[in-house]
Nucleic acid binder design. Structure first.
Lengths: 220, 220
DNA sequence: CCGCGCCAGATTGTCAACAATTTGGTCAAC
DNA sequence: GTTGACCAAATTGTTGACAATCTGGCGCGG
């Protein structure tokens, strides 16, 4: 059986998840003693977790003044989306080149579920499929480095969604984009896969930009 | 005056640097008590630093068995180089779009120094200029997210160099590539900048692949 | 009424002691 | 000789105590 994860690693992950889900507001103070009690660990673990999250950019810490949930500016949200685009287009390419038959079958199945979600107007299902599709592409690409980075970036972007700044997207419009990605990856056409992913994420980025300009948020 | 960095953050940076410079061998055990003495801090700080470096992928930790310098496989070295390429091409594009006059002047000056380094066969100077050039491009692009990621990736790649797996590059050959990047960025031509950077890093990646196949290293 | 210094409480930063676990070696039994 | 139990040293994991620092409010003097 696999050795259990270190408690510290575990706490980092839990806190990361909680912040990504918007359970803490931007700039909210993260008091070590409180968190230690809430997660039933001692302060040392919380301290370590906060240091890790600081490195991830989810938290800022000021000497002697503790940690806060990092507020992300409009400009930075765009940066994150652009960086994600750069990496994920590479992932799409690699998935097309290195993907296995099992992965391709998964993609097709996910696409089918997406179509069903659209016809049934099931936004939750679509969102779930969307996540599954991107996850499967990452798995197929088999680029652990890229995956780690992408997951961190996504936890930032997830905050937008949970804070209602970014809507779950428009299934009908993005379905075609997703289908194009699946088609290209399954055909093993790296260039087409990259193009399709770029197109998809460019429209995501455009959406984000609009949302930002609409809400004129001061950080999330 | 700027508030001093947290001791923990500082120790993480020092350890990261030491590992990047090859002062610890792959798989070498990192005993907390030893490091605490070496860096004149207590074990708690070292523990935290190790957790951060674990997240960075520079270290692996096994429960009750401590931390080791992470050995990076051939395949993973390629992954890292590819991911770097994906991000840095974006940085080049953004530098072309958003760079300021001061940055462009810096680039030109660095290019001049590079030429001098080549004519004088000063490998150390060239290497220094190379780092300065990439750093300046990052600054011009102003993408803090990308910068953070790139710096982490570079600390991995630096290990290759310090371990003698990857030579400092061949100045004469790469000078032209660098010049092309500078030219495109200074002209504000984003597409050309991206292409030039892609070309440059593609040859870097090719070089890495050859080095890997030559040494058949089992991890670094 | 307003500003300023100062105090108390809250919180972070530091440290050392102790508990739990792993590791490597020794020794006895077969 | 080999196997296996056991022990001791090394190391990691956990915890609590204490020191240092910040924060907000109170009262004093202007």
């Amino acid at each position: 059986m696999p050795r259990p994860a270190l408690a510290e690693t575990d706490i980092s992950a839990q806190l990361r998840e909680a912040i990504a889900r918007g359970q803490f507001s931007p700039n909210e103070r993260l008091v070590e003693a409180e968190l230690a009690e809430r997660y039933s660990v001692n302060r040392a673990h919380i301290r370590t977790a906060l240091a890790v999250l600081d490195r991830d950019g989810l938290v800022v810490r000021l000497p002697n003044r503790g940690a806060r949930v990092r507020a992300i500016s409009d400009a930075e949200a765009m940066e994150i989306a652009e960086t994600r685009l750069a990496i994920e287009t590479m992932v799409a390419r690699q998935a097309a080149l290195r993907g296995d038959a099992k992965g391709r079958a998964s993609l097709r199945r996910i696409e089918k579920d997406m179509r069903r979600a659209v016809t049934q107007s099931d936004a939750a299902l679509y969102s779930q499929c969307n996540a599954a599709l991107h996850r499967e592409l990452q798995r197929m690409a088999g680029n652990a480095t890229a995956n780690r980075i992408l997951n961190t970036l996504k936890s930032h972007l997830m905050r937008l969604q949970y804070r209602g700044i970014l809507l779950p997207g428009r299934p009908r419009a993005s379905l075609a984009e997703h289908a194009a990605i699946v088609k290209a990856v399954c055909a093993g056409d790296a260039d087409a896969a990259e193009r399709a992913m770029r197109k998809h994420l460019t429209s995501f980025t455009r959406l984000l930009k609009q949302a930002i300009e609409a809400t004129r948020m001061g950080g999330f």
